[in-house]
Design a protein around this nucleic acid. Sequence first.
DNA 1: TTGAAAGCGCTACCAG
DNA 2: CTGGTAGCGCTTTCAA
Lengths: 350, 350
Amino acid sequence: MAKRVKLLDVAKAAGVSQGTASNAFGKPDLVRPEVRERIFEAAKELGYRGPHVMARMLRTGKAGALGVVFPDNLEYAFSDPVAIELLRGIGRECARHGVNVMIISAENPKQAIAAVNNAAVDAFLVHCYSDNNDIIAAIQRRNQRLISIDTDISGAVGTVVLDDFNAAKNAARHLLDCGAKNFAILSLQATEHDHFGPMNPNRLGAASHRVVRERMAGYHAALKDAGISADDIVHIECDNQSAHSAKMTAEMLASHPEIDGILAMSDVIAIGALDGARATGRAVPNDLKVIGFDGIAAGERTDPPLSTMYQDTVEKGRLAAEMALSEDGGRTITLETRLLLRGSSQLSSA
Amino acid sequence: MAKRVKLLDVAKAAGVSQGTASNAFGKPDLVRPEVRERIFEAAKELGYRGPHVMARMLRTGKAGALGVVFPDNLEYAFSDPVAIELLRGIGRECARHGVNVMIISAENPKQAIAAVNNAAVDAFLVHCYSDNNDIIAAIQRRNQRLISIDTDISGAVGTVVLDDFNAAKNAARHLLDCGAKNFAILSLQATEHDHFGPMNPNRLGAASHRVVRERMAGYHAALKDAGISADDIVHIECDNQSAHSAKMTAEMLASHPEIDGILAMSDVIAIGALDGARATGRAVPNDLKVIGFDGIAAGERTDPPLSTMYQDTVEKGRLAAEMALSEDGGRTITLETRLLLRGSSQLSSA
DNA sequence: TTGAAAGCGCTACCAG
DNA sequence: CTGGTAGCGCTTTCAA
């Protein structure tokens, strides 16, 4: 491979200064068309490949990219429909700004820190459930602009979350309206550490994940209003995968046959719950009502279609990217959710 | 914001040279532990944020990232389950190598070229159907390492494709075995330009997308062996979205009621075909057999579950990333597919 | 093992 | 509108 042709070579060949040559590429308006053409011609002649990206970055201090980190989810981010939606929104806004999207990928937390340290980006978007995290510390150590999604990270320049409490409260209220009396809550993971299955009060109290805390509190608030105390609710912690929640649901329904209302903290979990219900011979919604959370597309195709608390995940991602790319900061945006009524939560018919 | 602390400041404070300070961070083994500690201490004292990523890049010439481009699909890449699977595979391999994944995002082809030009990456992975593309030209103009997926780009340093011809041939043969006699082919877009609906021979011949050409030829080959000529096949070009193919299928079945076998070039299209068939009162697989292509997860949950030609898309992405990250090149990898038999293509029961 | 110094290639500034 | 030039912050020779 021959030595790289650089801007100075082109400038010399065209008989202009390096600065002018630079302008010809970066700010064409500042160069007389005639001169510009001469520069381009010289560039073509010499086989100049265009300005060197890394050199430009160093000089301007702009990376032209946004980093996206899924600390809780590194390997599985691409299997979670919600994460994908988020990426769609992020991608859309970044495209509008002519900025690329860098996925910080890693096999384990240690590598993730290295990945953060090697990423040339103008800001980081972090989607995670808890704020206590080495990766976040690494970002902050680098003094990088940071936007948090779904959790409230101290020091973040912006935050986008849902009104999880009220969303969950409305979900529970809806199942009450449908006539459910005995409830199970299928929770997302409550802490960093895998610990699936029934949740005792200790575990409930230990929830470090903001969305779990908030949604749980919302469910409990609605049920308490209806005279149902937390002790009367079955709590199960699920991996966010339908196959897992299906198994959990089947076991749960076997040992708690009285359950007639399931509150799931994600649609992925809820879809598994429908499978588990079918496997144990329950008819949804007649014997058992199920409501999910998120509003993913797959919920339209389940049998019966899944009722859920819809959130506009694409918009959530878009807003986060918008905050990251704008100059100002310090804002927290809270998005509303809405009840998306489908077949899995009808009032029992005769 | 205070002026950035740099390596030289740390070096001075620690009473060592800049070079030694650099080694303390990048190659700790080359520095005496005692000195190293002193450097780290000085760094902490001064609030040094660690080596500047862009400066390091410029110096070393390594970006530590792989660029991924979906030229056909920029906005919709994140809605296509197959593209997501590909990203999973790419992400997995990149993580193994400690390299990040940069999604080249853009709103339109022109922006896409700018995005390519601004991306600091060590290589590009391009997933697209045809090789005739401005974005590819832009990558090549920059003289960047390029791996193509699903199409054969001249000048690519590596290529990963399927044996699309035989895959399609086997799919068609399978429907013949199930007893189908009158076929419709639901094709992916055949060229860059949107042009949906029935395909006449001109349009068939114009297919610039490699996978369309190959799969079409495979379908035709199998059907010809059974005495069915291309003229006797209904060809419909579909957008790769279930809602669209559902509509196309319903219209097609109305005007061609004799159709009893549908060959779809993607599962997304096939899933829509199942919907369209249901809407027009066809019973699958008794009245009509359907086979898709890809093997996406959603195909397990359709009614009936979708038969398909399975490809290992995750592995396809992983292999492409592996080629991009390895030093050598020039290879073309062709992956096999296999028939995944599910409910949509059974032999008619009585 | 450490120090000194040479650039990586570019853009932005300031002067003309 | 154009030219000259400093310097972004680092890594990596080469010599000591």
